[in-house]
Amino acid sequence: MVYVIRRLLQALFLALVMSFLVFAGIFAVGNPVDILIDPDATQAERARLIAQLGLDRPFHQQYFIFLGNVLQGDFGNSFVYNRPALGLILERMPATLELAFAAIMIAVVLGIPLGLYAGLRHGSVGSQAIMAGSILGFSVPNFWQAIILIMVFSVALGWFPVSGRGEVGEFLGIRSSLFTLNGLHHIALPAINLAVGHLALVIRLARSGTREVQAQDFIRFARAKGLSESRIVLVHILRNILIPIVTLVGMSFGGLIAFAVVTETIFAWPGMGKLIIDSIRLLDRPVVVAYLIVIVVIFIILNLLVDLLYSLIDPRIRLDGARQ
């Protein structure tokens, strides 16, 4: 319990620091009034807008006003849409989360078996092919790979749609395109695109983990107990290699959300990533700030979740943070 409280305090402090950095960074950007206002506007109109946006106050005041508003969930209105920035972000969050989730599932569901195989059959042709593929997966820049996916599977073969989210279904109160066939059809390419880099990472981790665990005495003892090979691999080895993989998945979920910027732009996926790119291009300050704060919060929550998950799969780690 003490541990959880300490972690929460740390998280709060981190959020505070980040909010300051974000605000200071954005504050340093050019004056948004210049874009917002008609170049022919009078000096008085200009001054009124500046006062309306609170831009005439000193930096620290602006920050505290900002902080106070943020704590009430008010990030200001988008300059472009003239609607609450937070609302805009939250509206698009489910699409991004479902994309990241689908990508993680692909990376884990394909990566663990492939990595296990490469580790167990170390040196075989199949294993070497898997490893070569994973090196390629690391090297191909994400955005170019997306273009190739479109070229091959949408344009040349016509199997998948080029862009968009497709139909959204509802299941257990969650609305997601993962619940309709049309939605799955739309999410396939973007999810694969987002997954490839992490798939390569999961394969590498699973493979090295398997090789390490395989050589342990307890695996030999499990064989001596007469357990079937499938039980040894699926229970004894898998449980051990899951620990680093869970860490990776937890840590990289945030990275996936960030990288979704690229995928969403190319596949015109209506998520937060596409919104932030558009907002950056249009210098829509409140949306950019809101996005960053939301991302920071997601990161902090993810870190906490990963720590909690740890203690579930590795009995040696207890929540006091000590490794026995």
């Binding site: 342990q216 005495d217 307890f218 449980r239 051990n240 590795d314 009995p315 040696r316």
Partner: peptide, 10 residues
């Protein structure tokens, strides 16, 4: 080595 013969995560 009894420290190594039992699977630590089971």
């Amino acid at each position: 080595d009894p420290m190594m013969t039992l699977n630590p995560v089971l």
